[in-house]
Computed example of a mutant assay.
Amino acid sequence: MDTLTSLRVFCTVVEFKSFTAAASRLGLSPAMASKHLTHLEDRLGTRLLNRTSRRVSLTEVGALYVNQARQMLDGLDEVEAAISNVAVTPRGTLKLSAPMWMANALIARAIADYRQRYPDVSVDMDFSGRIVSIVDEGFDLALRATSRDRLDPGLVARPLMEVPFQLVGTPDYLERAGRPSTLSDLNGHSLLLYGGMNANGNLTFKGRSGTEAVKFRVVMRSENEIMLHLAALEGMGLVFLPAWMTQSDVNKGALEVVLPEDVMFSIPLHAVYPSKKYLSAKVRTFIDFFAARVDSGRVCVNS
Results as ranks from 00 to 15, higher is better:
299 V>T: 09
203 L>N: 04
82 A>Y: 01
9 V>G: 10
148 R>G: 00
155 L>K: 07
178 G>P: 09
92 G>P: 06
237 G>M: 06
216 F>Q: 11
165 F>R: 02
125 M>N: 01
282 K>Y: 09
285 T>G: 01
134 I>C: 01
67 N>K: 14
288 D>I: 11
165 F>E: 01
118 Y>W: 11
75 G>H: 06
232 A>P: 08
155 L>Y: 05
283 V>G: 00
90 P>M: 03
141 L>M: 09
280 S>Y: 12
4 L>Q: 10
43 R>A: 09
136 D>E: 12
295 D>A: 14
268 P>E: 02
216 F>A: 12
44 L>S: 07
91 R>P: 00
192 L>W: 09
181 S>T: 14
216 F>N: 11
291 A>R: 10
48 L>W: 05
274 P>F: 03
261 E>I: 01
99 P>R: 07
105 A>W: 07
249 D>H: 14
282 K>V: 11
11 C>A: 15
272 V>R: 04
191 L>V: 12
42 D>F: 08
247 Q>F: 12
131 I>W: 09
34 S>D: 00
178 G>F: 07
234 E>Y: 08
115 R>A: 10
41 E>V: 01
217 R>T: 14
25 R>S: 15
273 Y>H: 15
71 Q>T: 07
65 Y>T: 08
170 T>W: 07
238 L>V: 14
32 M>C: 04
215 K>L: 11
224 N>R: 13
34 S>Q: 10
124 D>F: 06
119 P>S: 10
50 N>L: 13
296 S>F: 01
8 R>T: 08
213 A>Q: 13
